[in-house]
Design a protein around this nucleic acid. Structure first.
Lengths: 238, 238
DNA sequence: CAATGTCAACTAACATGTTAGAAATGATTT
DNA sequence: AAATCATTTCTAACATGTTAGTTGACATTG
């Protein structure tokens, strides 16, 4: 046969919560984020419908949302494909993320409660443990939780939501980064510096600590275009 | 008759560009922003379809987008109504806008070209003229353009888009604000301070000038809840 | 009269049929 | 062989039919 008839690659939607459209969105998002659908993949509505056993309505709605988040490109009257990376878009996402996280950490440094500080400090101690145990996946999760906690503590749920949408764009290229020895140790130290500035209610210090921390990630993205040109938007028109 | 049979309040979609869904979105958005559909209004898909002469598909898509921007609340399996204000949401939007605009103006202060500076300076001179002529509407437009220019000059189109989406949420309550004598004069002065900091390539000064400027607007929102309680989300459940 | 249960009317969500336009394919011409 | 052009085959976008859940009016009961 020319091709394994139809690879079942999407996660089942039966166990997910919410509307059908919401569940289809999650399933597709995971496939895109995990690079199961690598950049450039053509998305076939019909195939998705067959595989998930739903009609085109929820699939269309899910795709519309993915398009609004920049994860797919819709070509009118033609087709939809998984968005390729572009250095400019990555820089843009990093810029917006920095803007929001820096403002958030400044506010948290000013307004936080003892309980909030305790949760942050506990999370960083957990991070240190996980790094010591070389539990990369665990550290990655704790790292995400650390940032999520900070956003939550602004008291603005929309800020947390916006940042995680923006972070989606950075997560995908991040999966291509090679692990860098000692990076996680440094990340924990940087997190600790942020938490200490919060503890001291020092917004300026918190801001520059966060800024430094986020800059570490961005600096690693630049060489990516040469390593994985197939994932990047080609510059010439055709 | 009990009620003028069906008020034609939506702007026609025939002249607008883009897909049907996009045009319906614009028409609805204008009705919401201009308070033609005041907060709390029930949105009847059938009525919209009849009035604009389109099917439910583009209307649904438009409403989905309005919902994602927080301009309407969709009650699952029940109905959709124009979102009421809440002080918390206004503060949140103001927070996010400040975060992004402050970061943007810092970047522009660092990286701007002579041409970009010239455009900003020219815009502020225009503002001064318009205020002198008591052309409130003209000033309002120039004001919006000033901020749009700044966002554009970051070189990140997504930043401009995100800020204008956020600004949507602030625009509606802003329409309820009473004109405050001398406010526009001050606004021009604040804009000038921003432009001068940019000219001097002084990011810190640009940031604090922008921060001060945006704070002026937010401070005027607080009394709004008492003046127009009907537009605000009631706290008690029913 | 208040509380409750029933029912009709309405809606969002989903399924499916239709249309028009883009892109790839292949035939035709140069 | 290269370029052009018609045709076929995709697709997104739109229209419309169907389903199931929520709401509110109203009758019924305590």
């Amino acid at each position: 046969m020319t091709q394994a008839f139809n690879a079942r690659v999407l996660t089942a939607i039966d166990d997910l919560p919410g509307s059908l459209a919401q569940r289809v969105y999650q399933s597709l998002q995971e496939a895109i984020m995990s690079l199961t659908f690598p950049p450039g993949t053509l998305i076939r509505k019909g195939a998705i419908c067959d595989e998930l056993g739903v009609s085109r309505s929820p699939v269309s709605e899910a795709i519309t949302r993915l398009a609004s988040e920049g994860l797919v490109d819709v070509i009118p009257q033609s087709g939809t494909r998984v968005a390729r990376f572009s250095i400019e878009e990555i820089r843009e996402a990093a810029f917006m993320r920095e803007a929001l996280e820096v403002a958030a950490v400044e506010k948290v440094a000013r307004d936080h409660t003892p309980d909030q500080y305790a949760k942050l400090a506990r999370n960083v101690r957990l991070q240190a443990m996980l790094v010591e145990d070389h539990d990369t996946a665990g550290f990655y999760q704790a790292d995400e939780e650390f940032h999520a906690l900070l956003m939550e503590f602004t008291g603005f749920p929309g800020v947390a939501a916006a940042v995680s949408t923006i972070a989606l764009k950075l997560k995908r290229p991040r999966m291509l980064l090679l692990p860098e020895p000692g990076r996680n140790d440094n990340a924990v130290r940087e997190h600790l510096a942020i938490v200490e500035a919060i503890r001291d209610r020092n917004p300026d210090e918190a801001r520059s600590a966060m800024r430094y921390h986020l800059a570490q990630l961005v600096s690693r993205f630049d060489p990516l275009e040469k390593e994985h040109p197939e994932f990047f938007r080609s510059r010439q028109s055709h």
